[in-house]
Nucleic acid binder design. Structure first.
Lengths: 194, 194, 194, 194
DNA sequence: CATGAATGAGACTTCATTCAT
DNA sequence: TATGAATGAAGTCTCATTCAT
């Protein structure tokens, strides 16, 4: 039933990002998104199943292009260390370049209902798998140690970057995320211990 | 006006944890919490300002006792490495011992409105400061390196543990969190690199 | 946001008059008014800000058309004495012709909250000014004495008519208000003294 | 069951006047009145049937002593004109001397529910009868005309004085009501006409 | 007599979704 | 395709009253 493509499909998603970033998740009513997208309320239901579908699609579109970008970039890099650096860099760059998207995915969308969060989790999984691959390459190429569980490491990597972005937003995006790339990478590689 | 202490105060908070864990944040109506606590709806308003206040108080009480426990435990430990291990252990133990509380603080309460999330953020800050102190001790005692920003390290530590717990809940608390303590500690200390 | 015009706008106001007249101010719930107007509860909020706005609009619409009628009628009359008679007549006729409206404005709406009463007071002010003009004309044309304060006279005129209508309602509108026009006019003009 | 006399009975009524005058009818909760009277909430129910009974008793006590004062005063005066003047004077003086009582009886209590207003109406009736007697005396002594309906005149007298006090309160009791006695009397006796 | 903690019924308002045009 | 007016379910909080102490 829902069209899921076309000019208005994108207009609605982009309007949703702007509205949620500006007003917050709980004040982002369908009618507000429709007005921002210059369509009628009902039109949204020609392109999306329901409101949740708008949010999930939003995350899917943005995350999809992000993952695609990451995969393309990592393919060109052979060193797992450099891949890890690039992954951190792209993750931070992507959100630093679009504050609104950062606010939406990092803060607002996490207030959504279990249904939406579940779907978001599935989408995120693909990204986590990319992280896994980088770790595995490092281990295989004997550049990383092999005495850790890769899932634990993956949680460290994702959890740290995620927390970094959240902190940055909470402090109103006042400093540069790019400056964090190497410090984070160094901690990932060498830890805090001597 | 609100009493904020007494037998029923605690009964209501505990009922709120159970109800939110069972039904989810959006299905945790005041009337449901009241019934679970064996009090009348109106009684809740003798002990709390409003529904938000119940949620904030819940987080405050639980987090408060957790932070207090952590501080007490760390005081008895001189080695920053062991302090860090104990911090990870207590964090994971606290939530592993109370699955319901874990679900509420880790998943459900994050769906709450900005007002509540803001207050929760302030409460969390105290915990982050404890982490900071451990890091600083490690640096001062020259057991940790000094070429990293302590805030970056703090975000790694908190972000990693937080992501670990969230993953664990998402997988229905099927494995033991305690087994993660040392692996996480090792990553914090030595990183993934060789 | 609220539309404030249209077929349903009027239907809701008229339904409100009927419901308040029948059940009283405190038993005139939004849902009851909606049902009486054959609209959904939510529809009321497409035409009015909130419930208070319905009540204020009700008074404003009815009083507005009344004042307009009075002004039109008085414009056609040159004699202040006849103007005064017409004013009394219209005031009584208007409410005698619509018992429900009489009950609502005279009895029920006076139980409303301060917010509503304040707005009602402002609307009433316009009517009091019309009374003032009649008095002033009478004085200027030397048909009325000039040794009284016009505000005192205005309070006499309004207070007397108002009390007359209230008494009439309290006695279940059993007698004719029209019969009171000349007796009241005569008292206004000549007082009780010889 | 309700005691209806005693030190606390009066304390509660006086507290009710103060609370209603200060906070308004809709913010005058039983608990607030109890606190103001320095008694427990439950104590009020030892002296009054319910909250309505407090309000009715309040009006009854205050109005009762007022009517009694008026009757005593009028008994000492033989001239109906002077009786009328004294009635106006006492009515205005009584309320000018107690702004809080004026606000409560003139504004706030009129927002009460039909039950209370009905009882208040019955109490008021006695006062209206006093006015009737003055009019009748005037007519009998041929000082007043006899070509008017005494009920119409009574409504003029009560309505005018009532409106005068209400206006005065609405303008924050800024001017002296006593100055209005003779102007009002003159209008009652001679009207506005020449 | 006095207390005051506890009760629980009841209503305004929002907003995702539909469907006649 | 597109519109947008209309729908109606559902939840927080207040406060008069009670009754065990």
């Amino acid at each position: 039933m829902a069209k899921r493509t076309g000019e208005k499909y994108e207009a609605i998603i982009d309007a949703a990002v702007r509205v949620i970033a500006k007003y917050g998740y709980h004040q982002a009513q369908v009618s507000k998104i429709a007005r921002e997208a210059n369509v009628a309320d009902g039109t949204i239901y020609l392109y999306f199943e329901n409101k949740d579908d708008v949010l999930i699609s939003l995350f899917n579109e943005k995350m999809g292009s992000f993952i695609s970008d990451v995969e393309t970039a990592l393919d060109k890099i052979s060193s797992p260390v450099e891949q890890l650096r690039e992954l951190i860099r792209l993750h931070l760059a992507y959100l630093e370049n679009d504050h609104q998207l950062a606010i939406v995915t990092q803060i607002e969308l996490r207030q959504s209902n279990p249904e939406v969060r579940k779907k978001i989790g599935l989408i995120l999984k693909k990204y986590l798998e990319v992280i896994d691959q980088v770790i595995q390459s490092g281990v295989e190429q004997q550049l990383f140690r092999s005495d850790f569980d890769s899932r634990t490491a993956r949680r460290m990597i994702f959890g740290t970057i995620d927390e970094t972005v959240t902190s940055w937003i909470m402090k109103d995006c006042k400093y540069s995320l790019m400056d964090q790339v190497d410090p984070i990478l160094r901690l990932f590689l060498g830890g805090v211990g001597k």
